[in-house]
Write a protein that binds this DNA or RNA. Sequence first.
DNA 1: AAAATTTTGAGAATGATTCTCATTAACAAT
DNA 2: ATTGTTAATGAGAATCATTCTCAAAATTTT
Lengths: 164, 164
Amino acid sequence: MILINNQKYTTLLTELRYNCCMLKRTLAIQKALSESGYRITQPRRAVIEVILRARRSLSPEEVLARARKIDPSVSLATVYRTLDVLHEQGHLNRVRIGKKGYALVCSERELHFHLVCKRCRSVVELQPDRFSKALMTQLHNLGFAWQQNAIEIIGLCAKCNPAG
Amino acid sequence: MILINNQKYTTLLTELRYNCCMLKRTLAIQKALSESGYRITQPRRAVIEVILRARRSLSPEEVLARARKIDPSVSLATVYRTLDVLHEQGHLNRVRIGKKGYALVCSERELHFHLVCKRCRSVVELQPDRFSKALMTQLHNLGFAWQQNAIEIIGLCAKCNPAG
DNA sequence: AAAATTTTGAGAATGATTCTCATTAACAAT
DNA sequence: ATTGTTAATGAGAATCATTCTCAAAATTTT
């Protein structure tokens, strides 16, 4: 076993793991879209990758800026169009935070919770657990067909919460 | 005991109960706002009453139209301003449904779930149960201070769901 | 590779939301 | 009740996010 006791390497490794995980998710969403009859284009690929890779919720303008680093031709219209597609397919939610603006939270997995901080816009994912399973059962029994992979809970994270 | 076997009276009674319940809630929200230093004005009262009384999610324009039946002077600006206040205080959520438009869901009680149908905009409330209690505990343990009374789950209700 | 179809970029058009400011209403203190 | 202080309001103008338009380009199918 190799032990590297170095902050730099640890950070790099964490980053690598994160990117790898998000790449998988990006591909999963692309596959899902493709199977629903949507074409997987360069701009869409870029937008999806940007939203998934982000550790916090981005505004459409921010998504555009980051997506252009991958594909400089992407337009704002396409960002909005892709957001619509993702939302329609249940991969993305838009929830209002504060007086202005929304949180965009994207996910390819089954029903689970996202904790969105309205101050720093960070997004923490609650692992799908017994609660979400029980909730799914309850919804199912009511005949309610939910159309979102994630449920957003808005508030202040531990860091941004003055009282905590 | 008096038994009235008449559809008309049953409907009336149900309606009465509903109105009574919503009146209580309206007052509860007014009290909460007042305690937070907001003034309880006629237009605010009207807007809050309209949103709470509605059995489905309304658009701001719809809220305006209904509020004007209570207080004809209410302006659209005030509707938006009141929505902001309610949202800031955690009484109201705005979540996107479909390509255009939002659901406005208002609540004065503790953390619980709302099922919003994106087709008929109906809102069904899940009774606060062991799941929401457990969820609250989990959030608390993470140091996350949620700022909404209700969590909206978007989808199709049993009536609007073609598969169900 | 060509055909069929969807998607795109650019910028104009739209329309929801916010802003401005003089006026009014709510609340606290008297 | 009256007054003073201050927040809240209505009206419409201003802003800005979002959608629309359409010819051109990209994707997928044949």
